[in-house]
Design a protein around this nucleic acid. Sequence first.
DNA 1: GCCACGTGTGGGAGCGCTCCCACTGCGTCT
DNA 2: AGACGCAGTGGGAGCGCTCCCACACGTGGC
Lengths: 342, 342
Amino acid sequence: MVVSGRQTGRPTLEEVAARAGVGRGTVSRVINGSPRVSEQAKAAVDRAVAELGYVPNRAARALAGSRTDAVALVIPETEARLFAEPYFLDIIRGVSAELADADKQLLLTLIRSDKERQRFEQYLAAQRVDGVLLVSVHADDPLPDQVRALGLPAVLNGRRSEAEPVAYVDSDNVGAGRSAVAHLAGRGRRRIATVTGPLDMYVARCRLDGYRQGLAEAGLASDAALVATGDFTEEGGRRAMRELLARTPDLDAVFAASDVMAAGARGVLREAGRRVPEDVALVGVDDSAVARHMDPPLTSVRQPIEEMGRTMARLLLQEIGIASEEQPRRVLPTELVVRDSS
Amino acid sequence: MVVSGRQTGRPTLEEVAARAGVGRGTVSRVINGSPRVSEQAKAAVDRAVAELGYVPNRAARALAGSRTDAVALVIPETEARLFAEPYFLDIIRGVSAELADADKQLLLTLIRSDKERQRFEQYLAAQRVDGVLLVSVHADDPLPDQVRALGLPAVLNGRRSEAEPVAYVDSDNVGAGRSAVAHLAGRGRRRIATVTGPLDMYVARCRLDGYRQGLAEAGLASDAALVATGDFTEEGGRRAMRELLARTPDLDAVFAASDVMAAGARGVLREAGRRVPEDVALVGVDDSAVARHMDPPLTSVRQPIEEMGRTMARLLLQEIGIASEEQPRRVLPTELVVRDSS
DNA sequence: GCCACGTGTGGGAGCGCTCCCACTGCGTCT
DNA sequence: AGACGCAGTGGGAGCGCTCCCACACGTGGC
């Protein structure tokens, strides 16, 4: 027996029109919520739609109209490994929730090679999505500008620089550094070091700035010897921590710009015989699962990741609706979660 | 100044045909790789495509043909919290890689409420995707059957039961339990307990079966007092561990059916003054980031998650290509990763 | 009473493809 | 030699929508 698989039984707009006793145009207007329809006609159409179980065919819509009702979320794969992974899942969660409410599709695109990047650009050019969400862009990433050049709305997660021209949603990274240092200073720490992210990333520079501001506000002197550069990986955290211990053995606290780097640092501290938090207090950023499961559990600065995802989606939908000249930007607050490591 | 945004400049198939000096039909055939085209015509079309930078309009394709070149990956949100999160990211990674090679879209759908579930079903009915990938289905989940009833190919990640009627990709969960127990027994452990997942999930039952087989193969007696039921959460692991300690204080090893539960168990063991691994050896499943960052690092049974994702996508593409009656199934092997906790 | 207007409506003309039928040549079989 | 097949081809007819023009009605002003 051959199964057809292709049930042509789905009602079309034309059938709805016939059943409601109106023209195609009127049905289309009702479906799309145009105000130029009489109460009576609207009611008739609504009933016909319900009776027939009509669902508009999106391909036809996309072809005839211009919008596609789909939005792309782009994650460069190189970054995906760097950040604590749950980060992306939370972003996805937030984006997905917001898009579902607006009845838009979420198209997920991982870009892991130049070939795929090219394919994606082609894809955009083929008018396949209404807008683009970009996660974790590097300072030199041209993708956001390319997207905008195609006339597509875009929203970034994180900025590439202070003067980011494209719409973005970021968290208060300066505040993250400040609150971490304030907390450490408040517990009597005086030689507070930091392990930074890669300094070609704006997020890393912001957290470093916050660290410095925090020191100043606590009346502590800044000391270049207390700053070591990592790369957001565990191994990078380890390397930076070794460097710090060699340079400034008298440090009594470390602010790591990510939980993963904090985990690396923690390993080195243990090998060096430093107890956490007795000898060295430790604070990370992300409040990830890693932080909760470290020994001792890591004090960390929480970012509202899912909320960032939601906000990104919201801004994008807004831009799709009304193509404003001005690029919206949001900076969301962070929050210190105190655990045993500090 | 108003920006148009709508560059109509994209070449159409018709233009390509004109430029190549052939008919529309021939261009379509070349684009779709039909064999019924002369070398000469193909060359002309290929050149025209390259010169014009032609990219087929997918909406038109979907409307005229029947396929959409898109595949949905569905993740029930309730589950998303249960499993170690990176699991999903790895699945996504694998699926995405495979789909990109086949030039298919990945549509990500998180379902977190009945409303969204309904919307998704409507969506499927509207012929919007060529196939569906389903992650982490519960034993009583009707979604897979609904999808198949709509005539859409589907592939599950994990089975709902031994006799799963729908195509699936699973990992060797029995083998996972066996190898964990074999390892523990090999290190001289004799009172090996287990913390299971929720027993209405087939995966949990399989791991428990594996545990029992492992005991039998090591010549150790099965003892109901050594089995406690968890629910794949950390808190569940904690509860189960307390239960085990109360019932069988002489246990010297624990096989937890997930890393997250192992983390919960580890906390309880510590509170009870049992050292890991000296007093109690601990093994988990997933080989997640949590496992690597535990103290001591957790021995864990690794699943080839990304590979599962790839395989799922591959099976689905295959089914889309040739609608076979028979549902393919794959079971991938697991691998023990030994660390300090055992 | 006539014109101008605004509101609501029907339906033609596509959007850019795929499907498929009809047609041309040419080689092959009787 | 004629009949037949078949590879290769062109192009008509949609797919199910949206857009927009045209038109039927009011209603108000003069």
